[in-house]
């Protein structure tokens, strides 16, 4: 039976892991390889590395880091953050990343999805969609959630599926950081409208939130960052809990 995936996300700045207490207050949290290995030992199912470095020189640290991760980590991992051309996607995949995560670049240059999918297969393309409800309507946001677009999330999800995306990573911005639980209702709706796997993100705070998203939707992955970093939720315990709740889990 196919299992649901628990996916920790590591934010990377200048080759180091950072933990955000809030958006402007980033604390150095150490060597990404050490943290990633700990997650692998904890039975995380996949890892996502998000490069949040602002500098234009970022690739100088990102590519060597991806190579190092690929050498030491024996589960699939995705790399995202500022990848906006085929060449950089190619460099990162050839360094050993399994998947590339596109967000703003997918909105600005939708053909990039298609180009990466044709070169490396659609399983290599994860499109991240940040969504927020304003005036009773859902919209796609870009640039780290700072810019509202006029895109409807369901239409956009269908479009990126047609362009060759292999998976969707959907973050409900209003839930992100609240620890109130995932956006179950709308994620259920989006996931039922596409035929590719959907990963839910934003709002995880308790074990029961993971049960809610898996039991009530056909979402097959759930991503979280800080609750795992700060060990408010420990992955081994979370997995034991989900198994007792009859959620298919590894």
């Amino acid at each position: 039976m196919l299992k649901n995936r628990i996916i920790p996300c590591l934010d990377i700045k200048d080759g180091r892991t950072v933990k955000g207490v809030n958006f402007n207050h980033l604390k150095d949290a150490g060597d990404p390889i050490v943290l990633a290995k700990k997650y692998v030992d904890d039975h995380a199912d996949e890892l996502v590395f998000l490069d949040i470095s602002a500098s234009i020189e970022k690739r100088k640290t990102l590519v060597p880091l991806v190579k190092k991760i690929a050498k030491h980590i024996n589960i699939p991992f995705t790399v995202g953050g500022g990848i906006n051309e085929l060449e950089s996607a190619e460099e990162i995949i050839k360094s050993g990343a399994d998947k590339i995560c596109l967000n703003t670049a997918a909105v600005n240059t939708p053909t990039l999805i298609n180009k990466i999918a044709q070169t490396f297969g659609r399983q290599a393309v994860v499109v991240a969609i940040d969504i927020k409800k304003t005036e009773n309507q859902w919209f796609v946001y870009t640039y780290g959630g700072t810019k509202k677009t006029d895109l409807n999330p369901i239409n956009w999800a269908r479009k990126v599926e047609n362009l060759g995306a292999g998976e969707l990573l959907i973050t409900a911005m209003d839930k992100d950081g609240t620890k109130e639980g995932f956006e179950v209702d709308y994620l259920k709706k989006i996931s039922s409208q596409v035929n590719i796997p959907v990963i839910a993100s934003g709002g995880a705070g308790k074990q029961v939130h993971f049960k809610q998203i898996f039991a009530n939707t056909n979402v097959t992955g759930a991503l979280a960052a800080s609750v795992f970093h700060f060990e408010e939720i420990k992955i081994p315990q979370l997995k034991t809990y989900l198994k007792t709740e009859k959620i298919p889990i590894r």
């Binding site: 649901n4 995936r5 596409v194 035929n195 796997p197 097959t220």
Partner: peptide, 30 residues
């Protein structure tokens, strides 16, 4: 949903190539 992405279990026959692997062990498929 297609592709089949994620960890799934196997049901195996007792052959040397699959020794020390249990039926129900999970592997990563895409």
């Amino acid at each position: 949903k297609v592709p089949h992405v994620g960890w799934n279990s196997i049901k195996k026959q007792p052959v040397k190539f699959l020794s020390n692997i249990e039926s129900e062990d999970d592997f990563y498929f895409v």
